[in-house]
Computed example of a mutant assay.
Amino acid sequence: MPVGIEPLEGFHEKGNFSKAIIKYTNTVGYANSDGTLIITEQTLINPAYRCYVMLDDTIEYQAKLKQNLLNGESVYLPYLGKNEFSAWWNMKSVLEYDYSLFSAKSDFKINSIFVREYPLHDRKIRPKYSPSLGTMINQSSYMYFERLPIGFDEKLYQYELGEFAFTDWTLKQDAVFEDLYTIKSLDKIKVIQLF
């Protein structure tokens, strides 16, 4: 199933979510044969995403997933990283979008994270000062990179990782990306990538 992920505005700063360090200490003797166990974790604070899933109602498990999303149901508790960090979705915000394949007719921005297959620096529109507007146009502030799972090797029991990016850069019309789609969301046209 093709999936797209958009970090929500107002919850991240330049692609980064706030983080906290949590320390656990276990001093009971029966839990630790070598003394005190100290665990340190880094945790995201209030991450929020809009997740896009392209579903085909004619495929049984995808039709079932759609009904589960619409009804706020799941077979297992969804979680982010570990059981203590359960993931929730608002049933009222589960929406169906009209979409079409994106074809760049001008410079554009990608609103979701996307697969980065080549360096992007040369495909960025340079900011310029507009005397008539009295401000900078095409001004951008961040490019966030991360290696994320794109598949699972069942023989090796390992994730296959891909290079991803998230940015507010305006990209040149000739920048090529696979599986970009245009959707209309709250009177805005968004460009997202499904991978």
Rank of each mutant, 00 (worst) to 15 (best):
L44S: 08
L44A: 14
A48Y: 00
Y49E: 09
R50S: 03
Y52R: 00
Y52F: 11
M54Q: 11
L55E: 02
L55S: 03
D57V: 00
Y61T: 15
A63V: 02
K66H: 07
N68I: 01
N68L: 08
L69F: 04
L69G: 01
L69W: 00
L70I: 11
G72K: 00
G72W: 00
G72V: 08
G72P: 03
E73M: 15
Y76K: 15
L77Y: 04
L80F: 09
G81A: 01
N83A: 12
N83R: 11
N83D: 15
N83L: 11
E84M: 07
F85E: 02
S86Q: 10
A87M: 14
W88A: 15
W88D: 15
W89K: 05
N90K: 13
N90F: 07
S93N: 10
S93V: 08
S93P: 07
L95Y: 09
L95H: 14
Y97W: 05
Y97V: 09
Y97C: 08
D98Y: 09
Y99W: 14
Y99S: 09
Y99P: 01
S100F: 02
S100G: 12
L101N: 08
L101H: 06
L101S: 12
L101Y: 08
F102M: 04
F102E: 00
S103T: 10
K105W: 02
K105M: 13
S106T: 15
S106Q: 07
S106P: 03
D107R: 03
D107S: 15
F108L: 03
K109I: 15
K109Q: 13
S112Q: 02
S112N: 02
S112H: 02
I113K: 00
R116G: 03
E117H: 14
Y118S: 07
P119S: 10
P119W: 04
H121G: 13
H121E: 15
K124G: 04
R126Y: 10
R126T: 11
K128E: 10
K128G: 04
Y129R: 05
S130G: 01
S132F: 04
L133T: 03
G134M: 02
T135E: 09
M136D: 14
N138W: 01
S140Q: 06
S140W: 06
S140D: 08
S140L: 04
M143V: 12
Y144A: 07
Y144Q: 08
F145D: 11
F145Y: 12
E146I: 13
E146H: 07
R147E: 12
R147Y: 07
L148I: 09
P149Y: 02
G151F: 03
D153Q: 01
E154A: 11
K155L: 14
K155T: 15
K155E: 15
L156P: 05
L156A: 13
Q158D: 10
